[in-house]
Design a protein around this nucleic acid. Structure first.
Length: 289
DNA sequence: TATCCGACCTGTTGGC
DNA sequence: TGCCAACAGGTCGGAT
């Protein structure tokens, strides 16, 4: 599942292989993949034609391609299973090819959005004055963004009446963290996923933030090495699943710190993996005054 | 206003 | 062998 490090690998690929090219044609092969484009598939395709693609940008798990000669951007989200591939024009269509973008040049490659589960998609939006697609103005900066405000995040965390994993997955508070890296960072920080955010001291929340960044940077380093000229994204064969995970998916396997069997608990229609010894559940009434 | 939680979607896996 | 339920999880929007 693409999280921030995977999306950043995709962004770098788009910058290298797509930015600067002029769009000749867009084909929408599945309407659900442009469902976030209110005017529909035909409008999406028509408005892309003839425009130059600017430098690819990213915030959290969203990425976008500014159209260099307009005030709009192509916004993309990979969802659960989305891939953005730069493929030879004569390569066979992927089974789940949803959108194809051809270019007005002789490089012989095209951009393809492939998505099995269609949770992701592309859409076209006006930019805010900051150059951000307007529909993602509510998305917080991600922890790898140099402008991310650590102190503001820690304050917001203390004020929330929620639990720490919910907060990590709240993209309006901190973006780019998904279920996998949330579990990894919490394991490193020795925090139970249901720990109330209001009980986190500043040193503890600073430590958690450091672990979030460490997990992401390590995954980014691995993802970056798997990149080649044909792919602008991660895929199942590229080392995408080669991450060394300490918590996620390790039910009944020994904790790498203490040897206690790891546990999985259903949580919010998904799963949380944790060490029952290193990550003690919170005491029900515990709060900081 | 803040928070919670079901729905969306499809391929894979495991149980019967 | 075939059928079916469970599972994976990011985001949105309705409910509380």
């Amino acid at each position: 599942m693409p999280e921030l490090p995977e999306v950043e690998v995709v962004r770098r690929g788009l910058e290298r292989w797509v930015s600067g090219r002029t769009i000749a044609e867009a084909q929408v092969l599945h309407p659900r993949s442009v469902r976030r484009h209110p005017a529909g598939a035909e409008d999406f395709a028509a408005r892309l034609k003839g425009h130059i693609v600017g430098i690819a940008r990213r915030r959290g798990k969203y990425l976008w391609l500014p159209l260099a000669d307009t005030d709009a951007s192509i916004l993309g989200h990979l969802g659960m299973s989305g891939q953005l591939l730069v493929q030879p024009e004569d390569a066979a269509d992927e089974k789940h090819l949803r959108i194809r973008i051809r270019f007005d040049d002789s490089l012989g490659t095209e951009l393809r959005f492939v998505d099995q589960r269609t949770f992701g998609g592309l859409s076209l939006h006006d930019n805010t004055p900051e150059g951000l697609p307007d529909v993602i103005a509510h998305i917080a900066r991600d922890p790898l963004d140099p402008a991310f405000d650590d102190a503001a995040f820690q304050t917001a965390l203390r004020l929330r009446r929620t639990t720490v994993k919910r907060a990590l997955l709240d993209q309006s508070l901190i973006s780019g963290v998904g279920n996998i890296y949330a579990d990894e960072a919490l394991w490193r920080a020795k925090l139970h996923y249901e720990r109330p955010t209001a009980t986190l001291t500043r040193p503890r929340s600073a430590e958690l933030l450091r672990h979030v960044r460490d997990v992401m940077n390590e995954a980014l380093a691995v993802g970056g090495t798997s990149f080649d000229s044909l792919y602008v994204n991660v895929n199942g064969e590229s080392g995408y699943f080669d991450r060394s995970l300490d918590a996620y998916g390790r039910e009944d396997e020994p904790c790498r710190r203490c040897g206690t069997p790891m546990r999985r608990r259903p949580w919010m229609n998904r799963s949380s993996y944790f060490c029952p010894r290193c990550q003690r559940p919170p005491r029900p009434t515990r709060t900081l005054s």
